[in-house]
Structures are given as structure tokens and as C-alpha cells.
């Protein structure tokens, strides 16, 4: 058991436990703040997967942007929604959730089954990458590397994404504006 392994299992446990809390909790505010915990622990997992730039982006975009948006939407959608949520029956396990539960479990069994059938030590492209020393080492500086490939190899998807972001921003502003007889 190295330190990295211990950190990985700790972060993985936090991710899954907070996601389970989101799945079982009825309170919307607690759900949003637990989602915050999940995202932070996921950023830690990205660091352990040697993607530190992705981890920082995750924190900036998700925690700084998405969560604030969600809290805004929650506050703007008024008190009635909250009262509506609190007044529901408080069974931990209700029969109406059984199909969803079974579907999720079946999905999990299928995915885990595929995982255990795959022999990860003999994947051809992974072995090629190891043979050609195409593997990221823990002390590589990846941020500059990502920046270079973002404006050379992936320039077209990058530009398309920027246009899509612009369209999404204009669209969101258009949808949420006050309607005046239109």
C-alpha cells in the first residue's frame, strides 16, 4: 500500500459515498452541496490520473460556474418548490423506485462484468504506448503539452466549441429574458 493507493481509495470512497447521498437525499440544498463534495473529490482523482490541468479546469468551471448557476436557479425557483419537496412521504425505500434501482444495478453488473473480462495488461494499444514511451510520467509537465496540442492538432474542435459556447450563451440569455408580448 503506497501513499498514492491510499489517496486513491480515500477519494474514490468520497466520490461514491457523496454520490449515494445525492441519490438518497430529499433536500435540494443538501444535494447541491454534496454535489460540490463529489466534484472536488473527482478533481483529486484527476490529479491521481496525472491530469492536473483537467483537475484545475474542473474546479474552476464546475465549482465556480455550474454550482453557482444551480444555486441561483434554486433560489429563483421560489419557496413553493422547497415546501413541495419537504411535504412528500418520507420512506427511505419506496416501491416506485424499485424499477429504477433494478435498472441501475443491472447496468452496474453489465459494466463490471465487462471490466473483469477485459485483460488490461494485454490491450494492444496500451502495450504499443508503453513500448513507444508514450505514457505520461508523474513528473511530466503536461499543461504546456496540452496547450500546444489544443491549438495545433485539435484546432478545429476547439473553434467549433467556441462557436457553440457563444450560441449557448446567447440562447440562454434569450430564453431567460422577460417576455414582453412576444
Amino acid at each position: 500500500m503506497t501513499m498514492v493507493k491510499i489517496m486513491f481509495y480515500l477519494l474514490g470512497f468520497i466520490v461514491l459515498a457523496s454520490a449515494l447521498f445525492i441519490a438518497t437525499s430529499k433536500n435540494l440544498v443538501r444535494t447541491i452541496f454534496m454535489f460540490f463534495v463529489t466534484l472536488m473529490a473527482l478533481a483529486g482523482l484527476y490529479v491521481l490520473a496525472l491530469a492536473d490541468f483537467i483537475a484545475i479546469t474542473q474546479i474552476v468551471v464546475y465549482v465556480g460556474g455550474v454550482l453557482v448557476l444551480m444555486i441561483f436557479a434554486f433560489m429563483l425557483s421560489g419557496r413553493e418548490t422547497l415546501a413541495n419537496l419537504e411535504g412528500r412521504q418520507n420512506h427511505f425505500v419506496s416501491i416506485s423506485k424499485l424499477p429504477a434501482f433494478l435498472l441501475a444495478i443491472a447496468f452496474f453488473i453489465v459494466i463490471v462484468n465487462i471490466l473483469f473480462r477485459t485483460d488490461f495488461n494485454s490491450l494492444p494499444w496500451v502495450n504499443d504506448a508503453i513500448a513507444q514511451k508514450n505514457v505520461i510520467a508523474p513528473n511530466d509537465a503536461m499543461t504546456g503539452n496540452i496547450g500546444v496540442s489544443l491549438i495545433t492538432r485539435y484546432l478545429l474542435p476547439f473553434e467549433i466549441l467556441s462557436i457553440l459556447l457563444l450560441a449557448a450563451l446567447v440562447g440562454a440569455a434569450h430564453i431567460s429574458r422577460k417576455e414582453q408580448g412576444a
Binding site: I54, V126, A129, I146, Y154, L161
Partner: peptide
């Protein structure tokens, strides 16, 4: 993406997915 250091496919598309 750990096994794609030269062309950075995994990490770049992770960035795109976040955005």
C-alpha cells in the same frame, strides 16, 4: 488519456466535455 502523451487525445477531450 495517460497512455497518449504525444497527441493528448484523452485529456483534450476531457476538457471539451467539461466545457
Amino acid at each position: 488519456g495517460k497512455y497518449d502523451k504525444i497527441s493528448n487525445g484523452g485529456q483534450t477531450f476531457a476538457l471539451f466535455a467539461i466545457v
